[in-house]
Design a protein around this nucleic acid. Structure first.
Lengths: 358, 358
DNA sequence: TTGTAGGCGTTATCAA
DNA sequence: TTGATAACGCCTACAA
């Protein structure tokens, strides 16, 4: 499994004292030149710089950080890296950090607790100054995270259902978004509206599903549990394009019902796109036979044909705000208490939901 | 711009000697327990473990790595993180590394040399054991990379047009892929075939464009430079969904020609999708009025309607092979000389290219 | 303007 | 089975 350790050694790299020796000064003098602060005569500075170049010296960040006690680096843990939602988030986070001179390391954690822990651990190992978590909540991960926070490393969660007095939360308003998506379909005259992406039992934490249920209830539509469908085998949250499959399979299941739905609200755009495929395959038309609404507004939603009605999530804002909150925690001295920012989503009405019925 | 440094200090974390003191043993003993190697009596081991838990001790990876001289971490520099191509690559790289006990840090470098250098630098600062580069070649980045390699840090490039005696290369066969895509359109009877995604002048390095040109030449079709179109303003390679815009704008430009093309080969699938949009907007049909072929075979290519004919790039294989090559360089003692792996691509014929004309 | 001393938190090495 | 010591490469603090 693991490779044999300490097997491999590289040619030794030049260090400060190598330079110092070469030039004939103290290591501190070299350090001053390299760091660019402190007084050094122009003459020695030039000599040092020459040696630095000649010996191809690079400062050892490990030693530097060990001494200085910070790295000016932030870690971002992403779950579903294949989802444009995640990547937009990452880009926004990075831009915000870069403006403040911080670097970003992204870790992928696709399949739950074990990988979350690996990611957190490797970031902590490298002493990042803070961590932004954008994976789904899970017991093992949460536990480890709590431990980490106790050591005073700043953490901000994005869309992760997780409570801790020192962890800020940034999240889209999934509940309201789910409500509005469903209400939109109800307004169009639909009565049999399905939800694809989670099961009634296991999806308790899924705010989008709750919004769906709330909207039905609010409009006096009975909940039909056959219309709420997740992944057939088990409930494990999986990521990547598999959500597209979930949409495809879920829709097939719905279509095989004695009385299939006339409308579908999908957990996210990929799920919606998968569902659209299944509808097409069945020879049905969207939105005429079945209306469909997604969630996220990934760039391709607008490009589908028919274009996809969806709930737009402010991905960039989420990333930016999370990064800002984290930076405040990192650079601020005070013990900030938990903050929560729930961001509004917008229903983007396009072709896939169709026009009013009747 | 930059935040005030050394401003922020955290509560001091427990160290090995804190534990040692608490338990009443030497730090080495604690180190042995924590690292899990070396002989420690079960009794002291338990006492130490208890103290570790009580004090919420976490090993300082910086100090550890400084001493051990390796981090078991690899860096991956990605350009266009919004492209499923990149994310599939990343997933494959990560899986391969994880199997060998290595962690992966991903850095984004979207806009060329300056960001490349920032990414390389921050990875080098953290002393990653090796770097995989999947951004487009550029002078500044290449230069920095060369310097890095001189310090004996292993580097593997993916699809990056870059020569160095100690940098391995993994790449899809863009030339052949471009050739076959174009030949496919020629075989279907097309004579006026456009290329979207680069200009004739600036795209010299673009193998896909070269493949296109070669195919035309091979079949005795004259090259019409108006049919080769990139981004209107300048040639800067940009990333993300902007390539979709390039496709959209490029197609519009082509459609406004006195004699527009009857077929289009797009630099990648996003570009193709953008072009399809423009064609739809113009009220033309695909493939009847204009046939189109993309490159990459991102998951959505199959889901478009019409589905997109494209050249499938073996993204996962590229990632896996690159990771394996890097691990060989990291764990191997010998000086491996440059290796190059060019992977075959497959033309996936779907609806967007249509059936034979005439 | 430059240098010296010491320590950041670990682990390799040798000794007990 | 455990401990003492030195060193990884750098920077802070102070001294010259």
């Amino acid at each position: 499994m693991t490779v044999t350790k300490k097997q491999y050694t590289r040619k030794r790299k030049a260090t400060l004292s190598d330079i110092a020796e070469a030039v004939g000064v103290a290591t501190m003098t070299v350090s001053r030149v390299v760091s660019g602060d402190g007084y050094v005569s122009e003459e020695t500075r030039q000599k040092v710089l020459k040696a630095v170049k000649d010996l191809n010296y690079r400062r050892n960040g490990l030693a530097r950080s060990l001494k200085r006690q910070f790295t000016e680096t932030v870690g971002l843990v992403l779950g579903d890296i294949s989802n444009p939602y995640s990547t937009e988030l990452a880009r926004a986070v990075r831009e915000t950090l870069l403006d403040q001179g911080f670097n970003l390391f992204i870790c992928i954690s696709e399949y739950g607790a074990k990988e979350d822990v690996i990611a957190f651990e490797s970031l902590a190992n490298h002493s990042v100054d803070g961590i932004i978590v954008a994976t789904r909540s899970n017991e093992g991960g949460d536990l480890y995270l709590r431990g980490l926070v106790e050591t005073n490393i700043p953490v901000v969660a994005i869309g992760r259902d997780f409570q801790h007095k020192n962890i800020d939360l940034v999240s889209p308003d999934n509940l309201k978004g789910g409500f509005e998506a469903t209400q939109h379909l109800i307004d169009l005259g639909h009565k049999r509206i399905a939800f694809i992406g989670a099961n009634l039992g296991s999806g308790a934490h899924l705010k989008r599903l709750q919004g769906y249920l709330k909207a039905l209830e609010h409009h006096g539509i009975a909940i039909d549990e056959r219309l709420v469908t997740g992944r057939s085998e088990g409930d494990t949250d999986v990521s990547g394009y598999s959500t597209e499959e979930i949409g495809f399979e879920g829709m097939k299941r719905l279509l095989s019902l004695p009385d299939p739905p006339t409308a579908v609200f999908a957990r996210n755009d990929f799920t919606a796109i998968g569902a659209m495929s299944a509808i097409n395959d069945a020879g049905l038309r969207i939105p005429d036979d079945i209306a469909i609404v997604g969630f996220d507004d990934i760039p391709l939603a607008a490009r589908m044909s028919p274009s996809l009605t969806t709930v737009r999530q402010p991905m960039r804002a989420e990333g930016q705000i999370a990064a800002e909150m984290l930076l405040e925690r990192i650079t601020g001295r005070a013990n900030i208490s938990r903050r929560e920012r729930i961001l509004d989503c917008d229903l983007i009405v396009r072709e896939s939901s169709g026009v009013k019925r009747r």
